[in-house]
Computed example of a mutant assay.
Amino acid sequence: MTTILIKQVSWQQHQPELQALRQQVFVVEQKVPAELEWQADDEDAYHWLAYGPQQQVLGCARLLKTGTLGRMAIAKTARGQNIGLRLLQAAMDFAQQQLGLAEVHLSAQTHALGFYQKAGFVSEGAEYHEAGIPHIHMRKKLSPQPQLGISNGKFFVSQHKNTVLTMAQQCRRQLRILDYNLNPAVFDNQALVDAVSALARRHRNSSIKLLLIDSQAVIKRGHGLLKLQRKLSSSIAIKQLSDDTGVSDNLVLADDCGVIVQSLVNPETIWADFNNKPVAQSKIDHFEILWGQANANNDFRLLDL
């Protein structure tokens, strides 16, 4: 399977990459006048890039603060790989979780109407032309934030950090995290530390278990969750596995029903379910077996130095 990384980027740092792809797709291939393609909106917009295994740029997308999606471009050699859907989902997740938007909208080229309809967009109004290309306006209402113990259904996760934070904030008793090295991009942030701290203090039976494999990387760089564990050791425990035997996924397990799974083989493959007790219990049972095989690591005290 080809590894595709979807990454949120800024115009200020990634303008050359964004411009090169959009120039090729819109200006060269679709004959859009250059003066229509390059707008002042780019500097204040949110942008995403899709990278291939050699860090080659395969796609891009843009979201304005008003909820307008656009500038979706996929390199000719990368089409037909669902990259556009993943870029679209990443932008919609951001609009919902970070901007608090109830809906998003876009101006779709009519040849892409089916693609956006499959993603849940509904067309409205009559067809019109932009840069000589037929378009139609489309809109999609965003689902409410998933609720732990209420929202059923497995879904693809494009914003790993945000989904983990949402689940941790809603957890009420038990949180289990199995991650190879407690990925700092996902787990080492003040919002998550605050959520775990609140959980640890919520009830005398609250329990947080952190299980990892590569402790040296964590010790070398430090980590907010491990520093918190030193302060709240009665509620937060940490152990280390000697190797990754029997571990195929990183896991976040909340109470008896919340699950987030990230494949170790294909780290971009992440799914979640906020209300699936049978699957959650199966993952919890496996976690507890690994927990019983793991050991404490006194080197974690070095984090306080």
Rank of each mutant, 00 (worst) to 15 (best):
G125Q: 04
K161L: 09
Q190V: 10
T110R: 13
G114P: 00
Q97N: 13
L165S: 00
Q117R: 15
Q98K: 15
Y180I: 01
M92H: 03
S123P: 10
A61M: 08
C60Y: 01
F115Q: 07
A108F: 10
Q170K: 01
A95W: 02
V57D: 11
S143Y: 00
G114H: 09
A75K: 12
N152M: 05
D194L: 09
L165W: 02
G114N: 12
L88E: 10
Q97W: 14
Y128V: 02
D188E: 04
L165N: 04
V164N: 04
S123G: 09
L175Y: 02
A90Q: 05
R172S: 13
I83V: 10
D179C: 06
N183W: 06
N82K: 13
P53W: 00
F156M: 12
N152S: 12
Q81V: 05
A168Y: 00
V164E: 00
L182W: 02
Q97D: 13
L175D: 08
G114D: 11
L165E: 00
F155G: 06
R173Q: 12
G84R: 06
A78H: 06
Q169N: 09
P184C: 11
A75V: 04
I133M: 09
D93H: 09
F155M: 05
T68D: 14
L175C: 10
A131L: 10
V104G: 05
L106H: 07
H111K: 15
R172P: 03
L182K: 05
Q190D: 11
V122A: 14
K140Q: 11
A191T: 09
G114T: 10
G132M: 04
L106N: 07
Q109A: 12
G153D: 05
A95V: 07
L64P: 03
D188A: 03
C171G: 07
T163A: 07
G125H: 04
H160A: 11
F94A: 09
V164H: 02
L63S: 04
I74A: 13
R176S: 06
V186C: 05
K141T: 12
R176Q: 05
T77D: 15
A108N: 14
L101T: 03
H160L: 11
T68M: 15
H111D: 11
L101A: 12
T163P: 02
T110P: 15
Q174S: 12
R173L: 08
L192M: 07
N183P: 06
N183Q: 11
Q54W: 04
L101K: 10
C171K: 01
H105D: 13
I136H: 06
N181P: 03
L142Q: 06
L165H: 00
F187H: 08
N152W: 03
R139I: 13
L58T: 11
P146N: 13
V122E: 14
L63V: 00
L148K: 08
S151R: 02
A131N: 07
L69D: 12
L113P: 03
D93M: 06
